[in-house]
Amino acid sequence: MLSYTLKRLLQAIPTLLIVITISFFLMRIAPGGPFDGERQLPPEIEANLEAAYHLDEPLPMQYLRYMGNLLQGDFGPSFKYKDFSVSELILQGFPVSLEIGGLAILLALLLGLPLGVIAAIRRNSAIDYAVMGTALAGIAIPNFVIAPILALVFGVLLAWLPAGGWNGGAWPNLVLPVIALSIQQIAYIARMMRASMIEVLGSHYIRTARAKGLSESQVILRHAIRPALLPVTSYLGPAIAGIITGSVVIEQIFGIPGIGRYFVQGALNRDYTLVMGTVVFYGALIVLMNLLVDLAYSALDPQIRYD
């Protein structure tokens, strides 16, 4: 297992290199540049700006320059956030996104898994319909609808919690964004858990366990849940990478200083260095999370081996 892990970590290097190279050229070939805005700049000034960021060099040269700097751990200065380097922006914002996203995932697992299991056990009962109906509503209502409603109701009308702001991560400021971020995940996880539980509960293996006289709760807790977690685990790999890197909607509506906005706004602003920084960071997370998922498979099902 250790050698497998090491092998996978080594493979991450070429994987990321491919991601970086494709992304670099994708981004640079796309129309629109960092200085295309409502105020059209005179050609003299645009030339100065391009020279300041080496955008006047041939593209392959810029690529080599970028890779050279990257090897030294230098992601370069952000185009838009000029007083900060890309590394500073990501390092300052990531802990915030990780905190909100981590709590959201935790909440989603703590609620989603049991709800899915219960719905599966009490299949086609009122509980099942209630849980799945709620889950479907959670999936159907996008978070750009949920988040402003939460802020309005709990932040303004009831005034129980702040309507926004980070406030150094004080807990009242965390509640609404974490809920808004987790609703959809709870629903996803509950739906998937229910489906795979039903699958497992119907299996020959569980029937055997029941036939051996084990109580229903023993059957479920000891034999059914672990294999049923497999699809949820597959889903969680990329999902976690996405959630802990923040959500632009949640950050804008609640004023959270995370890194989610850099993914969308960096691209919209053509903040080339920032986009590349987010790509590298996200790519590394994806690779890491999918590795963890593959390792988790063996823990959930000892028969899964990698050779």
């Binding site: 402003p148 802020a151 309005l152 932040g155 303004v156 005034a159 702040p162 309507a163 926004g164 702001g165 804008q252 509506i253 609640f254 004023g255």
Partner: peptide, 18 residues
């Protein structure tokens, strides 16, 4: 100075006195 780009979010926070 709080960087709030969403007008709806700013309105909420103005109404709540923030």
């Amino acid at each position: 100075f709080y960087p709030i780009d969403d007008a709806g979010a700013a309105l909420n926070r103005f109404r709540s006195g923030e």
